[in-house]
Amino acid sequence: MPRHFGDNGSVAESDVDEPRYSRDELIAELGVSEEYAEKIWNAFGFARMTGSDKVFSQTELDALRLFAGSEGTMPEEAQVATARAIGQTMARLADWQADQIREFDQHPDVPWSIEQMSKALGQVQSLIWRRHLAAELDQHVERETDERLDLVVGFVDIVGYTSLSRRIALDDLERLLESFEERVFEIVHAHAGYVVKTLGDAVMFTFITPGDAAATALEIQTLTDDEQIPPLRVGLARGRVLRRLGDVFGEPVNIAARLTGSSYPGTVLVDDDLATILADDDRFYLKSVPTLSVRGYKRLKAKALEVNRHAEG
């Protein structure tokens, strides 16, 4: 299938979805104002791309028409926020994928061209996204429709990461972060949790069930047993949060982050509300710790979470 790359980096197929519209032509077809189009364009992350290349297909125009036509049900600021979330996610993903594709392209044993790998990656990416979206939509009856809901928020980070990053080679640092993220993701998903995002040397996750969150935090700490991953620290907090554009916000997020920063290597700290809930779960042992004084909270009550070694089984 003949394909080419546009001047702005877009990939087009000559016999499927032939690009026919430039940016200016697209704006005219959509019937939106220049000001609105500029906001959306920049939110998608295309501020540096010109508008003269004919890179938009009829299919893409129809999809954007649906997006632009949602003004009656979605305020402009919400549309811009949605575009920004999509743009930031896709830009970060594309940056990593481009590096991987270039690396594969230079390998003598890889028989595929950049175009072939890009097309295959696009198909796989679409497949994975559709499956995730279908799963989320299927679960809508089990989840609150309100964006505000009670969750356990957790953070895990690598102790002494800044110092460590100065001492080891970049290749070793990359392998460490990949191993850390991969194994944390596996544990969180195995306990029916949700990974919100990664933040350098940290992973943020959420749980609906407090017991699952606690079990996950303790299992995460076992990752250091093989000595390939440095000591970790975990903080958990429960409460009402705002779920927005794939992220979560609210006081539990702040408290969980503060608890993580206050934890000793190899420990798990939980806030007072979560500790009260876990007190009746005989899988866990909660140890008192001094009241914490951290940024934003002068008297933050917390407890250290441990495995109850006297529990049956």
Rank of each mutant, 00 (worst) to 15 (best):
K301T: 06
R3Y: 09
A304G: 07
A12Y: 02
V11A: 14
N308G: 03
V289T: 02
D99C: 10
L242R: 06
L223H: 01
F185W: 10
D281R: 03
D226L: 08
L151D: 01
T59W: 09
A135S: 15
V270F: 01
A81P: 04
Q125Y: 00
E147S: 14
D7A: 09
S70Y: 08
V248W: 10
G200D: 06
P210S: 01
P230H: 11
Q228P: 10
V241Y: 03
Q88K: 15
Y161N: 00
D172I: 07
F207V: 10
I158G: 08
Q79G: 09
V152L: 03
T209D: 15
D146P: 00
R131G: 07
G235Q: 10
R148N: 15
G193L: 03
V234G: 04
M117S: 07
G51W: 00
G69L: 06
N308F: 06
K298P: 08
A47N: 12
S33Q: 08
A214C: 08
A47Y: 05
G239L: 01
S10Y: 07
V156I: 13
I101H: 03
M90K: 05
G6S: 10
L30P: 00
S163D: 14
G72S: 12
A83F: 02
E186G: 12
T82K: 13
T50L: 00
E186Y: 11
E136H: 11
T216A: 12
E60R: 10
V16Y: 14
G266C: 08
R309V: 02
G313I: 02
L164A: 08
F104A: 15
E34R: 14
D138Q: 15
L173D: 07
G313R: 10
T59Y: 11
I229C: 05
I220M: 15
I27K: 09
V159F: 05
A169Q: 14
R84M: 04
A134I: 12
D271E: 13
S118R: 12
G9D: 05
D226I: 08
I277F: 03
R131K: 15
K197M: 05
A28N: 13
V141E: 13
L127W: 06
P210E: 03
D171S: 14
L170G: 08
G193E: 02
T89I: 09
S179G: 14
D282Q: 05
H310E: 08
F44C: 03
A37E: 01
Y194V: 07
D247M: 07
H132F: 10
G6P: 00
V153I: 13
I168E: 07
